[in-house]
Simulated assay, not measured.
Amino acid sequence: MEQNNGPWPGPKGLIPVTSGRSEDANLINRHYLDSILVEMRILDSVEPDLTTEIFGKEFASPIVMPAFSHLNKVGKNGRKPMRENAWAAKKTGMMNWIGMETDGTYKEISEVGVPTIRNIKPFSDHNIIYKQIEFSKQHDIFALGMDICHVPGKNGKYDIVDGIPLGPVTVADLKSYVQAAGDVPFVAKGVLSVQDALKAKEAGVKGIVISHHHGRLAFATPPLMMLPAIKKALAGSGITIFVDCGIETGYDAYKALALGADAVSVGRAILRPLLDEATPGVMRQIKKMNEQLSEMMMYTNISDTKSFDSSVLHFQ
């Protein structure tokens, strides 16, 4: 599907964006998602199978948990959101994911027994990175990842998170983290260009997340806009392609999968149910999204998650 590299018309005309705030990047992303229309191919359609294989393990759906961070700070009534989220993933057969958390919090989550990817920040002190990789490997980690996009801060210098300085990520650095992970798959999160996708491939990653990290980059291109070109560039590499940012419904997830994603990470759509209702709220929301995804697959004659076809999509 040919992509428009210039200003694109959203559902209500050109979108005025002037501030470069994260809200604007997310607005652009929302309009881009809504500008993708779907044709109907109903004859011979059957109820689809959502089963999806990720890194050699079978999951109930291509929709996966997001890399939430710091949520255990708002735990109440003895129920910690990160652990509640992990239980929801386990009970629904989903792959779990966590962002920046301490080793102690990761250990609590690992005890739930759900396959989990742990994201590590690009700390300027590489010893912290290697220690977290080793600790994770000792506690049944499913895969490891790094927010390669979380390098600059808003002051134009390397960011500082929870008082810990971050630093640059070179291809050589990324390769060393992949090697430290050993047999554990390593994922580069925050890829938004063919250039970075090819560099991540050079470093030996097993997966990438096409993402602008909920609008960290001012005027960021929507991940789905970049997805087809990145998919083409990585063809034959065996690299698993995840997509996140603004996936709010199973309909959104369908569009990402039709454009070439192997799996889709959902964040904001489950954040409020998680904080308000814990595990049951997340399970209800995931059930709804899987139903929406299945509905769209039936309408477009897609019988399983290996059969998506981008020709069903049209851009306004």
Score class of each variant (00 low, 15 high):
Gly6Arg: 14
Gly6Leu: 15
Pro7Gln: 11
Ile15Phe: 14
Ser19Ile: 01
Arg21Ala: 13
Ala25Tyr: 02
Arg30Cys: 07
His31Pro: 00
Leu33Gln: 04
Arg41Phe: 02
Arg41Asp: 09
Val46Thr: 15
Asp49Ser: 13
Gly56Asp: 02
Glu58Asn: 13
Phe59Val: 08
Pro62Arg: 12
Ile63Trp: 07
Val64Ile: 15
Met65Ser: 03
Val74Met: 10
Asn77Gly: 09
Gly78Tyr: 10
Pro81Lys: 11
Ala89Gly: 15
Lys90Glu: 08
Met94Phe: 03
Met94Ala: 11
Ile98Pro: 03
Glu101Lys: 04
Gly104Asp: 15
Thr105Asp: 11
Ser110Asn: 04
Ser110Gln: 12
Glu111Lys: 15
Val112Ser: 12
Val114Leu: 06
Val114Tyr: 09
Phe123Trp: 12
Phe123Asp: 03
Ile129Thr: 11
Ile129His: 01
Lys131Trp: 05
Gln132Leu: 04
Phe142Leu: 10
Gly145Gln: 08
Cys149Gln: 08
Val151Leu: 08
Lys154Phe: 08
Lys154Asn: 14
Lys157Leu: 15
Asp159Ala: 15
Gly163Ile: 03
Thr170His: 12
Val171Lys: 10
Asp173Thr: 06
Leu174Gln: 02
Pro185Met: 05
Pro185Gly: 03
Val191Asn: 04
Leu192Gln: 14
Asp196Ile: 09
Lys199Phe: 13
Lys201Met: 14
Glu202Lys: 13
His213Cys: 03
Gly215Tyr: 03
Gly215Asn: 10
Arg216Cys: 09
Leu217Ser: 06
Ala220Phe: 12
Pro222Glu: 11
Pro222Arg: 02
Leu224Arg: 03
Ala229Trp: 01
Lys231Ala: 10
Lys231Ile: 08
Ala233Glu: 09
Ser237Glu: 07
Phe242Cys: 12
Asp244Gln: 09
Ile247Thr: 07
Gly250Trp: 05
Tyr254Ile: 01
Lys255Leu: 00
Leu257Asn: 06
Ala261Tyr: 03
Asp262Val: 04
Ser265Ala: 15
Ala269Asn: 12
Ile270Lys: 01
Arg272Ile: 10
Pro273Asn: 10
Val282Pro: 00
Met283Ile: 15
Met289Thr: 10
Asn290Cys: 14
Asn290Tyr: 10
Ser294Asp: 09
Glu295Asn: 06
Thr300Tyr: 00
Ile302Asn: 09
Ile302Arg: 06
Thr305Pro: 06
Lys306Glu: 14
Ser307Ile: 01
Asp309Met: 00
Ser310His: 08
His314Gly: 01
